[in-house]
Structures are given as structure tokens and as C-alpha cells.
Design a protein around this nucleic acid. Structure first.
Length: 880
RNA sequence: GGGCGCAUAGCUCAGUGGGAGAGCACUCGCCUUACAAGCGAGGGGUCGUAGGUUCGAACCCUACUGCGCCCA
């Protein structure tokens, strides 16, 4: 496939790269090649150290969004790096069955045919869902290929597949037998649209506008006023409650009042839970439709009266029967008003309202029989694993959220009134028996036995993911080898939904072995102004569009470069274009290097035979290799990418390649050495960039090395050479000299391409003798010819000494521009000097500051003094 | 109400005790033989406010203001 980018035929040096890098033309085929060669397939029997990541399973209904793209880029980067480091690296892909979402999709499809799931029946409906999955589900797995995800497709799993279903049944049975799963009648969160129970964390609270209505119950002296935001539930009231210490109502406690509109008489009870400060200090008690009221009801032995059905429709007999809860509310208030019972109304009234996380419908607290996980011991273990440091959470501030959640956890409602999902393996007998059936066991047969109709929360099966995907409950080689997984990478927004639950179940199922050693929680991807992306705001960016326009490497680099631990990241199209430009830069630099014979087959010459520029770039490379490695190790993706970006662009391209040009024009030995340094530096750089930008680096690397698989090549390590600080200083001087001359030329209005004669003098000339050819080339200054007549001059202070550059501009001299420049530089130098002198003149500073700081300030003072003297002389010497 | 976090250039963000940085945007000059998706040069910030600690604070402490998130 590199053929498409290679010009055929033998050449003395490879000259293979096309003039332009066109990612979309190459990516798919290259990815296919990696997969077919088995580069991503882990071998459980190898003797390499294991490294494993399980993917946060995307929904089977899902398509790739920016959050996935970020998450996957980071996981792929970690995995590819470990693979290069010689680990047996497994990144295991898969999807979850997304109970509510998937059922909704298929029901919608049925609705368009005029049918409901009940028309089909359970078995046929489930068959239909599988059919839907085969045809339209899992689009994301194709999109992951476009991103370049190096996952082991041979191990792809789905939460509803046979093995994982067996894992679900196994752990359910085990938890049931350990009394960690139970069935009970409780107030749960009910979504009237999805028609199912939800767990506490599937409810999103928001401050919504509602109304606060004060209603008078009873008559005369014995009447009492209650305030409520849910007037419609008054039909189900079975008491009024006040605080026991509340003097206002003490005389009423124990009496009864008549509940308006119903004629029922209900007691007034005293309960500590009531807040005397809220409203009138008296609250209506509706045990069937409010969790707090339910508890008050339990304490006082009140009856539970259900007045709303599963659709949120009034069931209480009477004029309101059949009204939806939101229609019933004004109707009931109107009826009460007609009776003169409305004492006060506050509208709008802001209060917290729970919404279904999936569909946004207002959640209805509902009394019903559900299945729960008794989380006590599980949550304790999950907290301890992090407290003990067996699992490390990054960034560490997130651990506080984790603890506050697992340490204050309510039992988890796991039953869902859906058809798509793992059906609860419990059978009910004719005489009220209940039997939990484990895998391989025969369910009870006979008259009156039937299976529970509810299925389990999707997160229940997701919580098993790190071990169910590896074959649990069987003791498979994969499980032996890859559990605990090395690191879990996901957004902090699903810390509770998923991470904490995996901890609970992993520790339980695996005899106390944690599911992962590290948890890396990244931020959320936001739009260019930092707002959360959402469909309703219309500010979502489709990563597939960026893949089309800029290629996978650019998308990945954009997201990885913006990933700073603990922070969300904003992205915009310009960012992606910048990343694409970086790829282009790397491509062009590589093309130049290859055209000039860069190679990795020539060994690097001894350092003594290298130039300052060679030693400088190699030393810088060593620093970058060590730095980038360390940054990746600490999940500092953004900084690692930034380091590479600046090394490639600002050092390798802007300076080394330019210096290499003069070296390549030198004698054959110099040219050969330069080709080796170019090749070596490029080689290591490509390896470092490969985990983040796998495609372009692979293509270039093959041209450079003739190798076949950068994804299996070794991760670079520092050479161990002692850095040549003198060479670095001279190169720094060279860079400063060149920049100063360019600045001067720019000020003087000399065109960049215009060659002028110049004479170099000063103490630095001899010390930088080896750099002067390059310096002249980079500044387009020629050796002075006959009749050289300098018209302007420039003095540059360098670490190696001073350099005076006298230039023949052939007449035109812009004195004012130079005066302006010198004045500005002088002001800066004077400010610097003043700052240094202030410090050094302060006895407290000279006594207390560390010697190295003092020495540094003294050196700065000296530099400033020299600069000031030089600048003043120059200014004085200007004509006019 | 409890907890966590953030406030640095026009925008998005690094920087966590000792010379204010990057990317993008902006200005000027360039088709300079790898690259105009580029090259060269440049402008731009009382580091949210007020105190405190320190020889020295963008950085540490306190309060305040504003914003965001999580939980109740």
C-alpha cells in the first residue's frame, strides 16, 4: 500500500514520498494490513509482560462522537506505546446492549409499521431486536476502524452474547445466595415514558419552574395549611405531618382533618423529618408517590394509597380519573380554589425536579416491587481498594468524588421493566416460592412456575466487563493473564455509573482482585467556546467529518494534544486544521530528508566526528525521548504531544534541517554523517509520534527504514550519551545571531531573498567559526567582496562573546527604523537592569536568597549592562 | 445546603516561589531550490478583586466576586 505513495524503481536513495500526504487515500488499507497481520491480536501464551485495557463499551445504538474519539485516542496511544515497549498488549473491544435505548429504537421502528412490542410478544420482539442489531447496530465498530483503533477484534464482545450472559447469571446467583440481591417493595424512580424503573443515578436533577400551592385541609380551628409542588398527589394523601417541636401545631397532632375533594379523614402526625421552616411547616403525606412520605408512612403505619398508574395517569375514582398528572394538577388546584381552599400560590416556583437520564421525562416516584443489590459490603470493598492504593485514580482529586459516592451508597435498583436485556433468573412458584437458577441448572417446571419478567439494568452487565470479557466465570488463559487490567480510561462523567460498579463486582467476583490497577479519568470534549456539546444546542461536532477532511492522525492529535488531566477540553475546526498542518510539516520534512539520503542503515558516527548541530539535535532528541516517555507514563497526553510538536517543528524543521543543508553540501564524510543523523532523528521521532499519529508515521517510517511494521517496532530510549553543553551553547548562539540579523534585515526593509555583503567581526567570531557558513546561509549574507563599503552595522551579544555584523545595503538605510528598534531594546534592557539592581541592592535578598539565584541575577545584571552600553553607543552613532 | 474545580494575551489553554508562555487569531514582508496546509519578522497580558505570608507571589494562605461540575 505504500506503493501508492512511492515512486517505483530503484534509486540511490529512497525518494519515495508523494509530494502531498493524503490521509484518506491510505488509512483504510493500512489499517486493514495491521489487522490482517494480527498486530493487534494479543497472545495469552507469550512470555511478554501483560498490558490490558478493556474498552468502555459503547452503546450498540451509538455512533462515534467526540467523546469516544478522545477516549479511544488515549487508549490507543497507551496500548500502542506498551506494545512497542514489548508488552503483550491487549485492548479489548465490544459494545453493550443499551436496554432502554435499543428497545426504544426498535419500538419506534415497529411504531412506524403501526405495531407495538405487545403485538409481537416478548420472544418475537427480542428476535426483532437481534435482527435490528445485525442490520443497523454497532455502526461504531466500523467508525473505530477509521480512527485507527488498535483493538483486538478477535476478542470483541457484546454484553448480550452467550458468554457474557452466562457471567451475568453466574454473578446474580452468587449474589442472591449471599443475600446481596433481594426483592422488595420500595419507592423507586419510574419513567412513565420508558415504562421502567431507574436507578438513582439514572435520574438527573434540574432546577425547574413549578408552583408552590398552599392548601387548607380541614375546617376552622382544626384546619391546617400544607404547601406542595405536587397538588395532584393530594388524592393519595394519607396524613398531614408536622414537626414534633412545632408549637404552632402541637395541639393538632393526633387529631384528624378531612382531605378535600375526597371526604376521607386523615390523621395529623408528628415526625422529625418535617422541616418547620419550609412553607407552613406542615406537609401532606403521600406514601405511594414520594420517597420521604413513604418513610414517614412506614414510621406511622400509614396506608399506601396509589393514585397514579405507570403512565402517570390518575387512577383515583372520581372526576379526575384518567387525567395525565400534568393535566390533573391545574384541574385539582381549580377544584380546590372553587372550594376556597387555596391559601397561597407561588408561581413560578423554582425547585429540583428529577428527569429520566435517557429521555428527559419527569421521573415519577412509584411504589413497586423491584430487585436490589445490597451494596453495603461491595461498596466498602470498592472504597478500600482505592484507599489501599491497589487501584489508583488519576487525577487524584477525582478519588474524593469516588469515596463520597461509594461511602454513601443506597441500594441499587437493578430490575427494569423491559424485554431487551438479561432476564432475571428467578422463578416464582405457585405457592409463593422463589428460586434463583444458576447457569446450567434446570429451572423448575410444573404447574404455576414462571420466570420473573423483568430484565437487569444494562450497567449490571457492564459492571462485569473487565472479567466477563476475558472469559469469567471460566478460568481462561486470558483471565489468568490479563486480569487485573492495567488501566481503565474513561470520562469522569461515568465514574459512578460504571467505574465504581466494576470495582464492586470485580472485587467480589475475583476474590478481592481489583479490576484495574489504574483509572484514568479524562475530561469532556466541548465546543470552541467551552460549552458542552449537545444536540439541542446544535453545537456538536461530528468526528467523522474531521476524519474526512483532515484524516485520522489530525483528529487524534487534536484530541490528544488538548487532553490535560483534570480538565475538559475545547475543540474547534481550526485546531484540527492545525494538527493536519503539523502532519503536513512532518511529511514535507521527511520528504526532504529522504530526498537527501537520510537513512537508518548508516550507523551514527562517533560523537567526536559530528558537528555541533548534530550533537545538539541528538542531545535534544534524547531529552525529548525521556520527557515524552515520562509524560505518557503520567497520562500527560497534552504535554507529550506539545513537546513533540515543538521538537519537530521548532527544532528539527526550523533549525536542524536548515543546518543540515549546509552540511549536505560539505564533503562526502560530512554528508554521510548528516544523512545518518537525519535518519536517526527522524526514526526516533516517528516512533515517539506513532502511538498518537499511527498512519502518517507508519508510511514515512517504511520509506525511511525499509521496515514493515512501525506498530511493532521498539519504543525509543535515550542514548545515554553525555550531552554536549558547549555544542548546545554554540547552536543557541547561532540561532540568536541568525534571528537578530533577520530582525535587522526586516527592520531595514531588505527583502528576504536579497543577498548582501557583510563582514563579521568580534570576539565571538573565532568561537563560532564552525557555525559561520551556516549563519551566512541562513541570513543571506555573502563574504565581503572588493570595494566592500558597509552602510549599517549590528552588534549582537552572545554567550560566546560579541559579534559585529557590518552590512553593505547598497545605499538605502532606514535610520528611523533602527532608532526605533534600538530605543525599544534599550528600554527593555534598562528595565531589566533596574529590576536586577533593586534585588541585589536589598540586603534581605543577598542574605536570604539561595546563592544560585543570586548568581543568576548578577549575571543578568551584567548582560543588561553590556546591552545598555552597546545600545547607547549605537544610538549615539546614528546619523541625524 | 454539602463537596470539588476554575478565573493568565482577542479565543482555547499550559505554567504552581526567583527572567509572563503555546496553539489559533492579528500586523508587516516573502511563491528563499521539503513545505503558501508554508517561510521570516512583529504587536498584544496591572496573571479576577482585596488583604496576608515571604528577601521575593501568576504560583502559598484568607476573604470576596464570578463561572462550571458533582451530590443532597
Amino acid at each position: 500500500m505504500t506503493e501508492t505513495h512511492s515512486s517505483p524503481g530503484p534509486a540511490q536513495f529512497p525518494v519515495g514520498l508523494a509530494p502531498k500526504w493524503e490521509p484518506v487515500a491510505v488509512e483504510a488499507a493500512l489499517y486493514q494490513e495491521w489487522v490482517e497481520r494480527g498486530d493487534f491480536t494479543a497472545d495469552a501464551s507469550s512470555d511478554r509482560p501483560p498490558f490490558s485495557i478493556v474498552i468502555p463499551p459503547p452503546n450498540v445504538t451509538g455512533v462515534l462522537h467526540m467523546g469516544h474519539a478522545l477516549d479511544h485516542t488515549l487508549m490507543d496511544t497507551l496500548t500502542r506505546r506498551r506494545r512497542m515497549q514489548g508488552y503483550e498488549a491487549l485492548w479489548l473491544p465490544g459494545m453493550d446492549h443499551a436496554g432502554i435505548a435499543t428497545q426504544t429504537v426498535v419500538e419506534r421502528e415497529l411504531a412506524s409499521e403501526g405495531k407495538s412490542r405487545h403485538d409481537l410478544g416478548r420472544e418475537e420482539f427480542v428476535r426483532r431486536v437481534w435482527q435490528w442489531k445485525a442490520q443497523s447496530g454497532g455502526q461504531i465498530s466500523q467508525q473505530m476502524r477509521r480512527l485507527g483503533d488498535g483493538v483486538d477484534w478477535s476478542r470483541e464482545r457484546f454484553t448480550m452474547d452467550e458468554g457474557l450472559s452466562r457471567a451475568v447469571q453466574t454473578i446474580f446467583k452468587r449474589l442472591y445466595d449471599d443475600d446481596l440481591i433481594y426483592r422488595a417493595e420500595r419507592i423507586i424512580n419510574w419513567c412513565p415514558r420508558c415504562q421502567t424503573a431507574l436507578s438513582d443515578i439514572e435520574v438527573e436533577h434540574s432546577e425547574d419552574e413549578g408552583e408552590l400551592v398552599s392548601i387548607r385541609y380541614g375546617e376552622g380551628d382544626s384546619s391546617i395549611v400544607v404547601a406542595t409542588t405536587r397538588a395532584e398527589t393530594m388524592l393519595g394523601d394519607t396524613a398531614v405531618a408536622v414537626h414534633p417541636e412545632d408549637e404552632r401545631y402541637r395541639h393538632l397532632v393526633g387529631t384528624e382533618v378531612e382531605l378535600p375533594l375526597t371526604g376521607r379523614r386523615i390523621p395529623i402526625v408528628a415526625d422529625e423529618h418535617v422541616d418547620p421552616e419550609f412553607g407552613t411547616g406542615a406537609v401532606k403525606v403521600t406514601p405511594s408517590h414520594d420517597p420521604n412520605d413513604f418513610e414517614i408512612g412506614q414510621r406511622h403505619g400509614l396506608p399506601n394509597l396509589t393514585v397514579l398508574d405507570e403512565r402517570g395517569v390518575i387512577t383515583a375514582a372520581g372526576p379526575f380519573e384518567g387525567l395525565d398528572r400534568f393535566e390533573a394538577r391545574p384541574a385539582i388546584v381549580a377544584a380546590l380554589r372553587a372550594e376556597g381552599r387555596i391559601v397561597a400560590e407561588k408561581r413560578p416556583y423554582l425547585h429540583a425536579v428529577g428527569h429520566c437520564e435517557r429521555c428527559g421525562t419527569v421521573v415519577e416516584p412509584r411504589l413497586s416491587k423491584q430487585w436490589f443489590v445490597n451494596v453495603g459490603p461491595l461498596a466498602k470493598a470498592a472504597g478500600d481498594a482505592v484507599r489501599d492504593g491497589r487501584t489508583r485514580i488519576h487525577p487524584p482529586e477525582m478519588a474524593k468524588r469516588y469515596f463520597s459516592w461509594v461511602d454513601n451508597l443506597h441500594d441499587w435498583c437493578i430490575s427494569r421493566q423491559l424485554w431487551w436485556g438479561h432476564r432475571i433468573p428467578v422463578w416464582y412458584g405457585p405457592d409463593g416460592e422463589m428460586r434463583c437458577v444458576g447457569p446450567g441448572e434446570e429451572p423448575p417446571t410444573g404447574e404455576g412456575w414462571h420466570q420473573e419478567t423483568d430484565v437487569l439494568d444494562t450497567w449490571f452487565s457492564s459492571a462485569l466487563w473487565p472479567f466477563s470479557t476475558l472469559g469469567w466465570p471460566e478460568k481462561t488463559p486470558d483471565l489468568e493473564r490479563f486480569y487485573p487490567t492495567s488501566v481503565l480510561v474513561t470520562g469522569y462523567d461515568i465514574l459512578f455509573f460504571w467505574v465504581a460498579r466494576m470495582m464492586m463486582f470485580g472485587l467480589y467476583a475475583m476474590d478481592g482482585a481489583q479490576p484495574f490497577n489504574d483509572v484514568f479519568l479524562h475530561g469532556l470534549v466541548r465546543d470552541s467556546t467551552g460549552k458542552k456539546m449537545s444536540k439541542s444546542k446544535g453545537n456538536s461536532i461530528d468526528p467523522l467529518e474531521w476524519l474526512d477532511r483532515y484524516g485520522a492522525d489530525a483528529l487524534r492529535f487534536t484530541l490528544a494534544r488538548g487532553a490535560n488531566p483534570g480538565a475538559d477540553e475545547a475543540v474547534a475546526e481550526e485546531w484540527a486544521a492545525g494538527a493536519r498542518n503539523f502532519g503536513t510539516k512532518l511529511w514535507n520534512a521527511s520528504r526532504f530528508a529522504l530526498m537527501n539520503g537520510a537513512n537508518t542503515s548508516t550507523p551514527l558516527p562517533d560523537r567526536a566526528e559530528l558537528t555541533d548541530a548534530d550533537r545538539w539535535i541528538l542531545d535534544r532528541l534524547d531529552t525529548v525521548v525521556a520527557g515524552v516517555d515520562e509524560l505518557f507514563e503520567r497520562f500527560e497526553f497534552g504535554k507529550a504531544c506539545d513537546t513533540l510538536y515543538h521538537f519537530v517543528w521548532d527544532e528539527f524543521c526550523d533549525w536542524y534541517l536548515e543546518l543540515a543543508k549546509t552540511q549536505l553540501n560539505g564533503d562526502e564524510a560530512r554528508a554521510t554523517a548528516t544523512r545518518a543523523v537525519l535518519g536517526h532523528t527522524l526514526d526516533a521521532t516517528l516512533r515517539l509520534l506513532h502511538p498518537v499519529m499511527p498512519f502518517i508515521t507508519e508510511v514515512v517510517w517504511r520509506e525511511l527504514t525499509g521496515g514493515q511494521a512501525l506498530d511493532r517496532a521498539a519504543w525509543p530510549v535515550p542514548s545515554g550519551a553525555t550531552p554536549d553543553v558547549e555544542a548546545e551553547r554554540r547552536i543557541d548562539d547561532l540561532r540568536k545571531l541568525v534571528t537578530e540579523v533577520r530582525r535587522f534585515r526586516s527592520d531595514q526593509g531588505l527583502k528576504p531573498g536579497q543577498r548582501v555583503d557583510a563582514r563579521l567581526t568580534g570576539t565571538a567570531v573565532d568561537r563560532l567559526a564552525d557555525q559561520l557558513v551556516a549563519a551566512r546561509a541562513l541570513t543571506r549574507l555573502d563574504e565581503p567582496g572588493d570595494g566592500f563599503a558597509p552602510t549599517v552595522s549590528l552588534e549582537v551579544g552572545l554567550a560566546s562573546g560579541e559579534m559585529t555584523v557590518e552590512i553593505d545595503t547598497s545605499g538605502a538605510v532606514d535610520v528611523e527604523a533602527e532608532r526605533k528598534r534600538l530605543t525599544k531594546d534599550l528600554a527593555a534592557a534598562e528595565k531589566e537592569l533596574a529590576g536586577c539592581e533593586k534585588k541585589l541592592g536589598n540586603p534581605a535578598f543577598t542574605e536570604k536568597a539561595p546563592p544560585e539565584v543570586r548568581a543568576k541575577i548578577e549575571a543578568r545584571r551584567e548582560t543588561a549592562e553590556v546591552d545598555i552600553r552597546r545600545l547607547r553607543e549605537r544610538l549615539a552613532g546614528l546619523p541625524g
